[in-house]
Every structure is written in C-alpha cells, then in structure tokens.
C-alpha cells in the first residue's frame, strides 16, 4: 500500500508545471524515504531529478517500494481539477496498474477522486557522479528567469562566466551581444534577494537557452535558485521545495567542436 498526502494541491501543481514541458512521462519511485523521479528530456540533453522526502508529507505510507510510470500530461489534467488549497492524496495498492489521486476541500464538503492508469516505462536510471563544483551561485529565482528570458531573444546559447567578482551571462547573435552581470550582494535585508558566489576556480560554460528557460518553470517553487558549475560537466540548476525536497535540473554544456 502506498499513500501520500499533502496539505495543499498547489505544491503538486507547481511541481508538475516545473517538469511537464521537459518530460512527457516519468516514473515516480516511491519508498519509505519518499518519492523520487529521474528522467531525461527527449533529446537527452537535460536530466530532471526530483526528490520529495516522506517527512515533508502530512501523511506518508509506503509498505513496499513501488514505481509508478505516469503520463505527465494526464497528471496535469487531473491536477487542474484541484483547487490550490485542497488536500491532495495519492494512493496505490502494491502491484497496482492504477493510482488514485484524491482532492478534499478544506471544509471536507467536496471530495473528488481520479483514477489514472499507470504505464510501464523503460527505466534508464543514470548514476550522477559526486562532483566538487568550481562555482556555486545562489540568486533570486525570478532574476534568473528574467535573465534567461531576456537573453534568449539574442541567441540560442548563453555563456555563463563566473569569477569571484560576479557572474556574467552573455548571448551573441545577429543583433549583437547582450551581457548581464550580477555582483555578489552586500548585506541585504531579505535573504531571498541576495546573490552569493562560492568560487574555487573561475569557470566559463556555454548552454542552450531553451533548456534554461524550461528549468525556470520551477520559479514558483522557490525564491532562490542555485547554479553549480564546473568545467566540462553538466550545469546543475536547483530549486529547493520548502520542507519537502528539491528539483534539480542537469544540463549538458555546449562544447567547442
């Protein structure tokens, strides 16, 4: 028996919004430690890794490990039927071929449930090596989304250059060159507005704008985003999900031919 309950459907809606543009389907691996999903986009350029810890749920029960392959478009349809403040419960029997998603209004006067067929997906689980990143940048997630959106107008690629002075995003195309530099903030009242850079070595990497823009669909989940970079390895873009877990996107760099 698997059962997981969250106080607010809005969190699950935001999580789905954050992955459904990159992935059409995904396997939710459930164990007593929580729920995990790892999947590459169709072109195998990026990888999504979602972790939701069992202790972040209002109720969590998983007697036996189960893997639930889901069509994310179908799941999005179901979640559209929930009000943001509804409780949401996911339930499945061991070895089931369906999952039930139930929404309850705060006053319990409306209860709806949706049974969704599960899919058998080819699982290609990748081992992500432990990496000592040369640069770790933390910045407001809205600022990162704005930069990715703005620079995508000028080029398919963005060059991210991180030094101890700051982080610079550059896009060069037919129009010309756009540069956006962010310096580390001094003391700010609100932590969520700060930019911080933890640099061991300067690093310059090139990435495709369209994937970065897809990652920013996770912006509503977190006020801050963390970018971890190291020469010639995938970028990690991490959004923490408060008290529940995180979503990490890995993006393979573009490398000079």
């Amino acid at each position: 028996m698997f059962e997981a309950r969250l106080g607010q459907a809005t969190i699950l809606k935001k999580i789905l919004d954050a992955i459904k543009d990159l992935l059409t389907e995904g396997t939710f691996d459930c164990s007593d430690s929580g729920i995990q999903l790892q999947a590459m986009d169709n072109s195998h350029v990026s990888l999504v890794s979602l972790t939701l810890r069992s202790d972040g749920f209002d109720k969590f029960r998983c007697d036996r490990n189960i893997s639930m392959g889901m069509n994310l478009g179908s799941m999005a349809k179901i979640l559209k039927c929930a009000n943001n403040e509804d409780n949401v419960t996911m339930k499945a029997q061991d070895n089931a071929d369906t999952v039930t998603i139930m929404f309850e209004s705060a006053n319990q006067e409306k209860v709806s449930d949706y049974e969704m067929k599960l899919m058998n997906l080819d699982q290609e689980h990748l081992g992500i090596p432990e990496t000592e990143y040369s640069c770790v940048v933390r910045m407001p997630s809205m600022e990162f989304a704005r930069i990715c959106r703005d620079l995508a107008q000028f080029s398919e690629s963005v060059v991210i250059c991180c030094t101890k002075e700051g982080v610079k995003f550059t896009a060069s195309g037919d129009v010309g060159t756009a540069n956006i530099k962010l310096a580390q903030t001094g003391s700010v009242d609100k932590e969520e507005e700060s930019v911080s850079i933890d640099m061991q070595e300067p690093v310059t990497l090139t990435f495709a704008c369209r994937y970065l823009n897809a990652f920013t669909k996770a912006t509503p989940l977190s006020t801050q985003v963390q970018l971890s970079m190291c020469a010639d390895v995938p970028l990690v873009v991490e959004y923490a999900i408060k008290d529940l877990g995180y979503i990490r996107y890995y993006l393979a760099p573009k490398i000079e031919d």
Binding site: M40, E124, P234, Y250, A252, I255
Partner: peptide
C-alpha cells in the same frame, strides 16, 4: 561552432 553534448556522455547507467 559549438556542439551540444548529451547527458549520457557524462552520467553512466546505474
């Protein structure tokens, strides 16, 4: 010209 790498060229199958 830069070449787009894939994730599989960095991360191995478990």
């Amino acid at each position: 010209q830069s070449k787009q790498m894939t994730i599989a060229s960095f991360f191995r199958k478990d």
